[in-house]
Nucleic acid binder design. Structure first.
Lengths: 231, 231
DNA sequence: GCAAAAATGATAGTAATACTATTATATTAG
DNA sequence: CTAATATAATAGTATTACTATCATTTTTGC
């Protein structure tokens, strides 16, 4: 995907920021700096104070962009879903067979990001690490319902819906397409986290990306279709 | 299981508490009160101050039992794993066929708790709500590795290992038994959370417990065995 | 190129949180 | 019944998560 398109920017729900961080230099430094800092210290130890220091700005200035660190986390996760959707669309373009489409979609949803390219101030590799460890905290709060009303999780739902539709093309009778896809997405994150920190909760087979292989097998078997492997 | 056994207590790793809360009246009030309060306000808004107030004690006294609210959360999750293991053992007693054993195990891992019975000061129904919404926060921290060294997640691993072994009895060649089980356990929590807060990420079919049905199908298909339904 | 507007920086302040410490009082165990 | 232990009452500290104010810089519209 690298360099195929002019640099574009991804839309994030307006309710997560006070001022669009993609619209100014400081805003972009906030995004970049917060990705660096979050990856380094984790959400719990992350503060706007430290962030401001890291980017040579002030706490008050950061607060002009984001109401709280929770909103900033929502921003990053929303951005990630938008980015995933963008990659999903690309990887499905011109692919006809629904089985192929599903296989490719699953790969995008479960694989590890290895190049950081399309977006100037977002390091996608670091962002994925953050997503793996922190994204569930974005919705596991007392504010979910309220935030959900404002469409903050729409990007996530859209992806799940999109891939569910592919499943239903393959097997219109399959009863749990949304569960299956959200299980694969969240599960892939968890399994990567487990591999790093709690390896007895997962499996790793040398020479393959076991997370990708596992969820591929899981999904295709669940919907009762045995796919032709792409080489 | 109700009343079959004399009241017993479950062992929790020593490193999560300063003083065993099951050993004193105040300790038990702390457990009971924290389950009530956590369910009511969620982990973020939960403080030892509020807890102390709720149980008519003091902050300082609570701190004599638990170093921090994170440790208290670890206590509750560890207790939950111990309790799940206990229920797992019961549900597999005298069941010979490995397919049956797996079916029963999955049911225990994914079903909703409906009675609160065996343990005096732990409300298992409320505890399960807390687990659904908060348990992943117990390991998604910077302290995981350190805590893992002290065996704090051993209870969880033990369950995963136990059920993985059943899978391998059925299909010794299956490559991802741990992934499969941890996916089912965590996934079941997530899907219940989604059902309540983000329903477009899941599926619900009237007249069945879709979470249980979904993971049952998923697991049996993944390992290539088509189970006889129990009734 | 300049005035007005907007963005940022510098600094300060507040309420709440997450603890620690001290001493007094109650409870319990030998 | 005394000594040890547990709990309560109270106070205090450092940090966090903000909000407010005002000065300074940058941007923009003409």
């Amino acid at each position: 995907m690298k360099e195929l398109l002019p640099k574009i920017s991804l839309k994030v729900n307006e309710h997560v920021y006070l001022k669009d961080p993609q619209s100014s230099e400081l805003g972009r430094r906030i995004l970049q700096g917060s990705i660096d800092l979050l990856e380094e210290v984790g959400l719990e130890a992350f503060t706007f104070r430290k962030l401001a220091h890291e980017i040579s700005s002030t706490e008050a200035s950061v607060y002009r962009y984001f109401e709280s660190k929770h909103k900033l986390l929502l921003y990053l996760t929303s951005w990630y879903w938008a980015w995933l959707e963008y990659r999903l669309i690309f990887s499905l373009i011109n692919v006809e067979s629904p089985e192929d489409r599903l296989g490719r979609a699953l790969k995008v949803l479960t694989e590890v990001v290895e190049e950081d390219s399309d977006f100037l101030f977002i390091n996608e590799i670091k962002l994925q690490h953050i997503i793996v460890a922190e994204s569930s905290k974005a919705y596991l709060t007392r504010d979910v319902d309220e935030e959900n009303k404002f469409g903050i999780f729409a990007g996530y739902k859209k992806i799940v819906q999109r891939v569910s539709d592919v499943i239903l093309e393959i097997n219109p009778k399959y009863k749990y397409p949304h569960m299956l896809i959200s299980t694969a997405i969240e599960g892939a994150h968890q399994q990567r986290y487990f591999a790093e920190h709690l390896p007895r909760l997962t499996d790793h087979i040398k020479g393959e990306d076991s997370v990708v292989e596992f969820y591929r097998g899981l999904v295709f078997r669940a919907i009762e279709c045995f796919p032709k492997r792409d080489k």
